[in-house]
Design a protein around this nucleic acid. Structure first.
Lengths: 210, 210
DNA sequence: AAATAAAGTTTCCGTTAGGATACCACAGCC
DNA sequence: GGCTGTGGTATCCTAACGGAAACTTTATTT
């Protein structure tokens, strides 16, 4: 990709910056790790081979350490880089409690047929979407059209019994504990056939790469 | 942790270097990424804001880039650090058979701590791996080492209570119906704290981008 | 309270990263 | 052959990092 017009190049540049990396308060994170281990600057100095003064400056964001310095840090402290890069609080995991419906986090999407509840948020960077669905539909006729979306879907019945209608296969009866994995661009629809509404867990893949 | 003898300090240093970080041919890896995208140094320069010359020197291991430079690189190239640090690694499309105890990159966990059951087979083309796990471990001490694999993992407790130990966070207690989504290259381990063995459903992502 | 010690910061300076530019290699074109 | 353009490298110079030591601050001891 060498020969292109300027505008084209500019466009490429703009769209290329998909993953923006915030300034990242490295020092803060580092200090956190140090203190949580009850280490002094001297301790860290011994472990890493970096000078006390240098460490101090790094922690206070007065300098941007060399990559080799960073390597000494992760080597000496026995930590991983992802860890070091993980912003202080925004966790690399999201927790979904069974009874806890967080406002604005575990988002809900009620429809006449389904009621979805996301089990994870901060999904921007994630590759799967897990959610719990209450199946309200009692008959296949309630659907105007197939449900269909790119990617793949794993599904497990948590509660009740359902019929899984698919575009190309016979309806499949699934009960508590049963699971299935299918291409979700094949039309599909769930119907509850139990006394109460059925509950299923779904995990879908997200759009290709990005 | 401040006052100690020299020998004590030496000991601490030695044992502290648990995670030794090899020299790491950063330049090589970087060049690989650049070429695989058919980018020229100029392209990368535009994307990252770093000078052509600088990039050349980094690729040839003539300089050790500043951490801020590294940030520009991962930001501009739209990659993340683990990716950059991962040795060339010939994109392994492993997981040949449905081995019932195979997880991820050919790593087996026939341990007394877990018992896996794959919930889907013919996984070769799929992007997720769903399996049900019986957690036998009753204490964290039973683990020799963290469980760790590339990608992300979604987990829901189907039965019993567990403690999720993670490398970077406090142990987390999860009970029936709770779920969590986390980066699975962060060390993790499950321990059952209920009467009987706990059962969890896991869905992991498979090899990067692909 | 003074004295001592240790943790952390700032100062000074040699070394090095990073940018601008010049240079080399190699292609395609007149 | 020269001419022109592009990808990559080497050179120079400024800005910045990293280390030793001086300095400040806080804690501990007498």
């Amino acid at each position: 990709m060498a020969t292109q017009t300027d505008s084209d190049a500019a466009l490429r540049i703009a769209s290329g910056r998909k993953a923006f990396v915030e300034p990242l308060r490295l020092g803060e994170r580092l200090k956190e790790i140090r203190l949580s281990n009850h280490w002094t600057l001297e301790d860290v100095s011994q472990r890493t081979g970096l000078a006390r003064s240098t460490l101090s400056k790094i922690e206070n964001d007065q300098i941007s350490p060399t990559f080799s310095a960073v390597q000494k840090l992760i080597g000496g402290l026995g930590i991983d880089l992802p860890q070091l890069l993980t912003p202080p609080k925004p966790q690399s995991h999201t927790l979904g409690r069974r009874d806890l419906t967080r406002v604005g986090e575990g988002q809900q999407h009620p429809t006449p047929t389904y009621e979805h509840e996301l089990l994870s948020w901060q999904l921007a960077q994630k590759r799967m979407i897990p959610f719990k669905t209450i199946v309200r539909a009692r008959s296949f006729d309630e659907f105007q059209e197939w449900v269909r979306h790119d990617g793949e879907e794993f599904l497990m019945v948590l509660d009740g019994d359902i019929l899984l209608y698919t575009e190309f296969y016979e309806p499949l009866r699934l009960t508590h504990g049963d699971s299935i994995y299918f291409d979700s661009d094949m039309g599909h629809a769930l119907v509850s056939v139990s006394e109460s509404d059925a509950v299923v867990l779904s995990v879908c893949t997200r759009g290709e790469n990005a």
